[in-house]
């Protein structure tokens, strides 16, 4: 049967739910990620019938998730961790390097963390990351590169069992 219009929202949840969960974990941290995810999809469900045909559904969801994340961060108050001093505190062979990706991401400055999440975890081009964060694509690219540089120093993925590819 030829049916015009939008696919059932259930398909949207299945296709994009895991990506949005990654974004929420990266941006607001694993503890409140599920609340942020739920608010994102409830809000998306509400607006879904009015979404213009041909829209990029994933970018739309990430935009909503970004706004919900800002709400969460505001509600939780300022994050306490100053990040500028990390390089001095944690050396390349420091046994206290993070083995958990989310806590390593959590210590990045907001712009870096968001740029890394939206570009590397979602795959949005820097032009779209810039639209979300304000500023230019070049600035988003720089923020993501700085974030990655810090992560390489502060994050050590846990045991070989947890790695998907050999290094």
């Amino acid at each position: 049967m030829a049916v015009a219009g939008r696919e059932p929202f259930e398909q949207v949840v299945r296709r994009h739910g895991p990506t949005v969960l990654r974004v929420c974990r990266a941006v607001v941290g694993p503890d409140v990620a599920e609340d942020a995810w739920s608010e994102t999809f409830l809000s998306a469900l509400r607006a879904y019938p009015d979404l213009p045909a041909g829209s990029n559904v994933e970018a739309w969801l990430v935009t909503i998730a970004h706004r919900k994340a800002l709400d969460q961060v505001r509600a939780a108050g300022r994050r306490a961790t100053p990040t500028d001093k990390l390089p001095d505190r944690i050396g390349a062979d420091d046994p206290e390097r993070h083995t958990d990706l989310w806590s390593a991401l959590g210590e990045l400055p907001d712009k870096q963390r968001q740029s890394v999440a939206y570009h590397h975890l979602v795959g949005l081009p820097y032009e779209e990351v810039a639209v979300l964060l304000g500023g230019t694509a070049a600035a988003a690219r720089r923020a993501a590169a700085d974030g990655i540089k810090t992560l390489r120093r502060t994050y050590l993925p846990a045991g070989p069992d947890d790695r998907t590819d050999p290094r």
Partner: peptide
């Protein structure tokens, strides 16, 4: 470490 390896845990 490639960025793919860096984010393996997320996927």
């Amino acid at each position: 470490m490639s960025t793919t390896d860096l984010f393996a845990a997320a996927h």
